[in-house]
């Protein structure tokens, strides 16, 4: 699956929309005075909207790299060695630990 970086903006927009919808739902649920055994219609609509936006976001994430990352993790292959553009070797990504038994031995760590 080819990743189109131009579509990333839609991922960010959908993620923002999801936050807005979830926030609206939280507002309605917490400030409403619903009765036991009955879910207000507004809450049901917002729950459905949340699920829909989440589904769209999941689809976009799969398209924009999720599928490729999943495949790489399942097959144990590195996308960099599978023909993608490589990056110069970089240092240890882990946080350094000054008090660990070997202190400063890890480069950049």
């Amino acid at each position: 699956m080819v990743i189109d970086p131009a579509l990333d903006i839609w991922v960010w927009a959908t993620a923002a929309l999801l936050l807005v919808v979830m926030g609206a739902r939280a507002w309605v649920v917490e400030t409403g005075r619903g009765q036991l055994g009955r879910t207000p219609a507004t809450v049901r609509v917002l729950t459905g909207s949340t699920v829909a936006v989440l589904a769209v976001l999941a689809g976009l994430l799969v398209m924009q790299g999720g599928a490729q990352l999943t495949e790489a993790l399942l097959t144990g292959t590195d996308p960099a060695t599978a023909g993608e553009q490589g990056d110069p070797a970089v240092g240890d990504p882990g946080p350094g630990d000054p008090a660990a038994p070997d202190g400063p031995a890890t480069p950049g760590g």
């Binding site: 939280a26 976001l57 924009q64 790299g65 490729q68 993790l73 996308p79 553009q85």
Partner: peptide
């Protein structure tokens, strides 16, 4: 729902903003 917010934040950041990382340095994770 806060759990969902956390997962979405991590997934969106790693897949989109951190694309260079997992495309070039995935072996550091695995």
């Amino acid at each position: 729902g806060l759990v969902l917010v956390g997962f979405v934040a991590v997934a969106v950041f790693i897949l989109i903003a951190g694309r260079d990382f997992w495309q070039n340095q995935l072996s550091l994770l695995t």
